[in-house]
Design a binder for these strands. Sequence first.
RNA 1: GCGCCCGUAGCUCAACCGGAUAGAGCGUUUGACUACGAAUCAAAAGGUUAGAGGUUCGACUCCUCUCGGGCGCGCCA
Length: 549
Amino acid sequence: MIKQRITERLGSIVEKYCKEKGLTESISFAVEIPPKNIDADFAVNAAMLLAKKIKANPRVVAQEIINIIMSEMADFVDKADIAGAGFINLRLKNEILYKELAAIIEQKEKYGSLASNNKEKIMVEFVSANPTGPLHIGHGRGAAIGDSLARVLRHLGYNVTKEYYLNDVGNQMQVLAESVRLRYLQLKGDEVPFLEDGYKGEYIIDIAKRLISENKNINAIDFKKEAVKDILATIENDLKDFSVVFDNWFSEGGIAVDKDKNGKTEVDKACEYLQSTGNAYVQDEALWLASTKFGDDKDRVLKRSDGRYTYLASDVAYHKNKFERGFTKLVNLWGADHHGYVARIEACVQMLGFSKEALKVLLYQLVSLVRNGKPVPMSTRSGEFVPLKEVVDEVGKDACRFFFLLRAPDSQLEFDLELAKKQSGENPVFYVQYVNARCHSIFRESQNRTDLNTEPDFSLLNTKEERELMKQLSTFCDILALCEKTMSPHHFTAYLIELADIYHKFYEKCRVLGDDSKLTVSRLKLIEAVTIIIKNGLGLLGVSAPEKM
RNA sequence: GCGCCCGUAGCUCAACCGGAUAGAGCGUUUGACUACGAAUCAAAAGGUUAGAGGUUCGACUCCUCUCGGGCGCGCCA
């Protein structure tokens, strides 16, 4: 928030300066956090950029801008000086930090929320794993990223819907049904061979066992329906244990199977619409999507020559449906193995009359598993996959989510199962949670004091450690903005680790419960703000903030 | 063969539109508990940012090429 305000005010100063120098347009400069060895709160590169434009000495330009800053932003800036090639380094007035501290304490969990001015309807679609087996660890990464992103966007005031797209039609469903049926027969004693490409997991046998225990006639059993029912229940439960709850589960059957009064499905209608607008055409008895018109490298089949639709046709109809439900921004979170699909779905969105920006496809790299130094294959059909549930049960939901969000989605993530199972301080989540526990321990201890019935005076918070702490607390909003800009919540893990680091240093140097009542009360307020930010930040990541550990 | 992503400390990874001495955690070494939780802190060691060239005041970041890893290239989902 502070950074944003500084940027705005500097913007008008720079603009004014540009006019004075006869430039027709202003420049876009950056306000940054300087490296740790520099004793300043913010660094501005405007002078260097301007110097280039007006062909002047950057340090001279910097001095001229500093003169304006010192006269126009005296309420904000304590000190401004030139460094290096022409950086303008600013030191904030402490009063600004005190004000921010007060805002955190007053607004609590609402701090940083912009609920009033932003109501855009956003859909975040993620996980969307086929209902053919339990979620594995790769789905977990998508779940953690998607859910946390949704939490961040909600905190920023967007009207967010989390949706799971359910591919409950198609070949794989037949294979699933057949897999269960064959297991059922085998359990009954028939020596039928199993499908080579069938689903070989133990859960298939469990489903068959349940069906046998219900003692129904085999002809009365809808194997597909029963299998999907059990598997979905498992998926939903595993997600719940991972603190992920969807607002909506969208069935592909609803658009590919269900028909309106004219006997048409939504997929039929979407394809007709594309044809009517010249974006789909018939060739070799198949219906093609002219996706090359919007940047794809080849056109794609929507309807095969035998009359069956492809998966893409359903997906077109699905995205059309999303827009029809009033969403103006769609976020799709896909595993990187689907990246070849991005171009064609972006083409679809444009064919449906929306801008390319209305859809954001986020790819996350797959998780590679290591167990005892050996890579673990992860195909759902191999029967050797590692379920999300197994890892969550062993390392805990908090550690698991934090771990997934520790890295940028673009990075391949190596998940060492043996390492993840170690429930020790090696996991950074404990380091962050420990801050909260320590603060609450002090709160409990402070109950024994009778002299704390006085108003805080923030101006007593003037050590280097306290100032660092207040600064870090005040950048919470900047991290929110960064997550929005990059559409990734992972910045919060780094932020919280840094906050924890600063807090622990503060803890060593500044005793909270001291002889001076006024100072004690002020520091109690400071660490109250710390607990608020830790709890908010961890909350955005779907991680708990225990008061005792 | 073509396309997308990645390559940063021993390991796993950060680095906010291109910015200052590239940062954390783990691991290693050495210190610190008779006041709020040592799940902590202080200090040390560890780097030609895969390689080569280019753009510029300035490149981990942008461009070109090479090498290496992952993934994708079907009238499958």
